[in-house]
Design a protein around this nucleic acid. Structure first.
Length: 730
DNA sequence: TTCTCAGACCAGGGCGTTCG
DNA sequence: CGAACGCCCTGGTCTGAGAA
C-alpha cells in the first residue's frame, strides 16, 4: 500500500488534515482498523454522500474521529436495549401468536438450508430473528426442501434505506435484490403476516393478480373437464329414464361441491351476499341451474337439467310452470308476471299517440304556418273487426245467464307504401267515362308478364319436386318483383290497440267504437279556430264496414267536425277473397258425381283418401286448399316428367340436359330452369289460341279508343268526316 | 226404447288478493 | 317479490228428463 498516494482532506468533513502528527488518523479500505469498521457501519445514505476514492490513502480528522466513536457507543447501547426488549417479549408471550414466529421450532432453528437460503432483510424490523419465516396458522409453508431464512441486520438507517430486500444464498454465491415498491407489502406480509396477509399482499399486486386469475380459470376449466369427461361423467349427462327420474337439485349441488369446489365456491359467492346468513349447507337452486347451463354450454350432452325443465314445461300449466321456473330462478311467479304484464300493457297505444302527435305537427306546419310539405309519414290504417265470445255460466240464475259477448278488436297497421303524392281533395279521374276500357283490361305486356310469372311459379315446383333439377334450387326467383317490392320487403308494423268492449251489432255500440277510434285521428286547428281532421282509413270486413258507414251517416248532421266523426273513412278488406276464390274453383272443378272419372279432383281425393275435402269450402278451407295445391303440383310434376323424358321421379332425364360446355353458375342455372318451365307453361298451362285472341282483342280495343279519341273534339263531340267541314255532332 | 240435452259433480288450472 | 289462499272457469263424465 505504500505506493498509494495520500489525500490531504478528511474523509468525512473534507477539511484539510496535517500531513504529519497526531491530528490525522488513517482509514483502511479493508476494514481492519476500528475506524474503518465504524465507517463501514454507517448508513447507505451517508455512504453515498461520502464518495470515497479508495485509490488514495484516506485519513480522518480528530473531530470526526471523536464523532464516529460516539456513534459506535450509542449504537451498541441501542442494540443491547432492543435485545433486552425482545427477550422480554418472548418470555411474556411465548409462541402463541398469529403473527410470524421467530423462535417456534428448535429443529427449524438449527436446520441449515441445503441448497438455498432466502434472506429477507428489512430496515423497518431491526430486531434480529433467529428462525425462518413461518406463519403459525399453517404448517405447510415451511417445507424443508425450500426453506426461507430471514436474517436481520441492525443498522442505523437514513430514509434512503427504507424498503425490502431479498437475499438468496446458494452454496456458491449470494445475491440480493431490493423488492419493487409494489411488492413491499408482500415482503412485509411474508415477514410478519398471517397466511391471509400474504395472500392479500399477493392479490394486491396487479401483475400477480392477473397471473393468479389465469391459474384460477385454468383450475376451473380442469374441474369442468373432469365433469364432462367420458370416464367419470356428471349426473347431468345421464339422460336415461332412471337418470332423469332421480335427478334433483340437491344431487347436482352435492356433485358440484365434491367435484368442482372452485366453480361451486365462485357461483355461491356470486349468488349469496356476504351479509347473508345462509350457511354452506343451504341448497341454492340458482347455483345448480347456473352450473348446469354452463356445463351444457361446454358439453351438449350434459343436458339432464334442461331435459327436466323442458319436460315440466311441456306437461304443466302456466301457473305451475311459473312456480317451478321461479323456484329455479329462471322465471318469476305467475302473480308477479301478471302484475308486470298490466304495467307493460298500460302504455299500449303510446306509439300511436306519438305518431299522431308527429302527424299533427306536420299538419300544423303545412296548413297553419304554410311550411313543410314533405314531412308527412306514410300514415297508418286502423283495422277492426268483431270479437265474439260465448261464456257459459256455472251457476245460472235469473240474472246470471250464459253470456254472449260481442266486442271489437282493433289494430294499427302502418302503411308501407306511402300515398301522400295522391290528391286528397279530388279523384284521379273526374268521370268514369274518362277511363278507357283498355286501361282496365290487361294489356299485351301484362299478359307477357303473366306468362313470366307462371314460369317462375312452375320453376319453384320443379326444383322442389324433381330430384335431378334440385341443383338449381339456389337460382330460382322466390319473390316476383313488382312496383312496390322494396316497400313490401320491409316488415309490417302492427300495434295492438286492445279490445273495445262495445257491441258493433248495435248502433250505440258502433257509435262508441267509432268515437274511440276517432280519438286516434290527427287534427289541427286553423286560424279561424276550426278543427280539421286528416283522413285515416279504417279497414274492416263487409259487414263491419256496412254498419260503420250507416253509423257515420247517422251522425253526419252533427254540429262540429268531432261530432260528425270527420277524418274517418272506411275500406273493405276482403279477407275472405282467398276463400271465395277457392270456393269458386271447387264449384267449377270439384264434383262428387265424378268419382269414376280419373284425373278429376274428386276421384283423386278418393284415391289418396283425403276424406276431409268437402264440397263446401267454407267448412273445410284448409283441407280443400291443401288438396288443390297438391293437385296443381302433381300436374306440374307429371308435365315435367313428360317434357324431360323421365320414366320415374328418380330417373335420368333424356332431354333438356344442362349444357356441358357451360359452367354451372347462377345465371346459367336460372336460364336452364326457366327454359324447362317455359316449355311446360306453353304446352300445358297457357292455351295459345285463347291467349292470342285476348291479346288481339285488347289491342283492337285500344286502337278503337284511340281512333275514337282522334275523331272527337275536346268537349266530346264527333267531327264531321266530310273533307273541309268543321261541323260537330253530339 | 233410444237419443239428445242440460245440469251436477269433480279435478285441475287460471287469476287476483293478501300477507310476510 | 313470492307463497298461500280463495274464487272461478274448463273439460270430462255421469245422470236424469223429455222428445222422438
Amino acid at each position: 500500500m505504500s505506493h498509494l498516494k495520500e489525500t490531504e482532506n478528511c474523509i468525512l468533513c473534507g477539511s484539510k488534515v496535517p500531513s504529519v502528527g497526531h491530528s490525522r488518523f488513517y482509514v483502511r479500505h479493508d476494514g481492519s482498523t476500528k475506524l474503518s469498521q465504524v465507517i463501514s457501519e454507517l448508513s447507505t445514505n451517508l455512504h453515498r454522500r461520502l464518495q470515497i476514492d479508495w485509490s488514495l490513502r484516506q485519513f480522518c480528522c480528530r473531530d470526526c474521529k471523536i464523532l464516529l466513536e460516539k456513534r459506535q457507543k450509542v449504537s451498541a447501547k441501542v442494540a443491547q436495549i432492543e435485545a433486552d426488549i425482545l427477550n422480554r417479549i418472548n418470555v411474556s408471550k411465548g409462541t402463541c401468536s398469529k403473527k410470524l414466529s421467530y423462535d417456534c421450532d428448535p429443529a427449524i432453528n438449527t436446520s441449515t438450508p441445503k441448497r438455498t437460503d432466502v434472506i429477507l432483510q428489512t430496515t423497518s424490523h431491526p430486531v434480529p430473528p433467529v428462525s425462518p419465516i413461518q406463519p403459525i396458522s399453517s404448517k405447510r409453508l415451511c417445507d424443508r426442501s425450500c426453506q426461507t431464512q430471514t436474517t436481520f441486520q441492525s443498522h442505523e438507517h437514513g430514509h434512503e434505506d427504507l424498503g425490502c430486500k431479498i437475499i438468496v444464498s446458494w452454496p456458491s454465491q449470494q445475491r440480493q435484490r431490493k423488492l419493487n415498491k409494489c411488492l413491499e407489502p408482500l415482503g412485509k406480509a411474508m415477514l410478519c403476516g398471517t397466511w391471509c396477509d400474504i395472500a392479500r399482499g399477493v392479490f394486491k399486486v396487479n401483475e400477480i393478480r392477473h397471473e393468479l386469475l389465469t391459474l384460477f380459470t385454468k383450475a376451473v376449466s380442469v374441474e369442468c373437464s373432469s365433469m364432462t369427461s367420458l370416464n367419470n361423467p356428471t349426473i347431468l349427462k345421464d339422460v336415461t329414464t332412471e337418470g332423469i327420474r332421480s335427478l334433483t337439485i340437491t344431487k347436482i349441488i352435492k356433485e358440484l361441491k365434491e367435484r368442482t369446489p372452485i366453480l361451486y365456491s365462485t357461483l355461491v359467492s356470486s349468488a349469496v351476499s356476504t351479509r347473508s346468513k345462509r350457511g354452506d349447507a343451504d341448497i341454492i337452486p340458482g347455483v345448480a341451474v347456473a352450473a348446469s347451463i354452463l356445463l351444457k354450454e361446454r358439453c351438449r350432452r350434459a343436458t339432464g337439467l334442461q331435459l327436466m325443465i323442458t319436460t315440466i314445461i311441456k306437461y304443466s300449466g302456466f301457473n305451475s310452470m311459473c312456480a317451478f321456473l321461479s323456484a329455479l330462478r329462471i322465471g318469476v311467479s305467475a302473480s308477479y308476471f301478471n302484475k308486470k304484464c298490466d304495467e307493460f300493457g298500460s302504455s299500449y297505444n303510446e306509439r300511436l299517440l306519438a305518431d299522431k302527435s308527429k302527424e299533427e305537427q306536420a299538419l300544423r306546419r303545412h296548413y297553419y304556418e304554410d311550411i313543410g310539405n314533405g314531412d308527412f309519414g306514410p300514415g297508418w290504417k286502423i283495422v277492426f273487426d268483431n270479437f265474439d265470445m260465448y261464456q257459459r255460466v256455472h251457476d245460472m240464475t235469473e240474472d246470471n245467464q250464459n253470456k254472449d259477448i260481442h266486442w271489437v278488436n282493433h289494430v294499427k297497421v302502418s302503411n308501407r307504401v306511402s300515398g301522400n303524392e295522391l290528391p286528397d281533395d279530388k279523384p284521379i279521374k273526374n268521370c268514369l267515362s274518362d277511363l278507357d276500357n283498355s286501361k282496365v283490361a290487361p294489356s299485351a305486356i301484362e299478359h307477357i308478364c303473366q306468362r313470366a310469372n307462371y314460369v317462375n311459379l312452375v320453376s319453384r315446383v320443379l326444383v322442389e319436386e324433381i330430384p335431378c333439377l334440385q341443383f338449381c334450387k339456389d337460382s330460382i326467383l322466390y319473390h316476383i318483383p313488382h312496383k312496390h317490392s322494396l316497400e313490401a320487403a320491409t316488415k309490417s308494423e302492427k300495434k295492438c290497440l286492445g279490445i273495445i268492449q262495445e257491441n258493433e251489432n248495435t248502433t250505440e255500440g258502433m257509435l262508441e267504437t267509432l268515437k274511440s277510434m276517432h280519438s286516434y285521428v290527427p287534427r289541427w286547428t286553423s286560424k279561424e279556430n276550426i278543427t280539421h281532421f286528416t283522413d285515416i282509413g279504417h279497414v274492416g270486413d263487409q259487414l263491419t264496414v256496412e254498419r260503420s258507414v250507416n253509423c257515420l251517416m247517422a251522425v253526419s248532421n252533427g254540429f262540429t267536425a268531432t261530432e260528425r266523426l270527420e277524418g274517418i273513412y272506411f275500406e273493405i278488406a276482403d279477407w275472405h277473397a282467398d276463400l271465395k276464390f277457392l270456393d269458386l274453383i271447387y264449384k267449377r272443378f270439384y264434383s262428387t258425381s265424378s268419382a269414376n272419372d280419373i284425373c278429376t279432383l274428386f276421384a283423386e281425393r278418393n284415391l289418396i283418401n283425403r276424406r276431409n275435402v268437402k264440397t263446401d269450402t267454407h267448412h273445410s278451407y284448409a283441407a280443400n286448399k291443401q288438396m288443390l295445391l297438391l293437385a296443381i303440383r302433381s300436374r306440374i310434376v307429371v308435365a315435367a316428367m313428360k317434357v324431360l323424358g323421365l320414366e320415374t321421379l328418380d330417373g335420368n332425364m333424356t332431354t333438356f340436359h344442362f349444357p356441358k360446355n357451360k359452367p354451372k353458375n347462377n345465371s346459367n342455372k336460372q336460364r336452364y330452369i326457366k327454359q324447362i318451365a317455359a316449355v311446360i307453361v306453353d304446352e300445358f298451362v297457357i292455351d295459345k289460341e285463347t291467349n292470342n285472341s285476348i291479346i288481339n282483342y285488347v289491342l283492337d280495343e285500344r286502337d278503337k279508343e284511340q281512333l275514337l279519341k282522334n275523331c272527337t273534339t275536346v268537349d266530346g263531340r264527333f267531327c264531321c268526316r266530310h273533307p273541309g267541314c268543321s261541323k260537330t255532332f253530339k
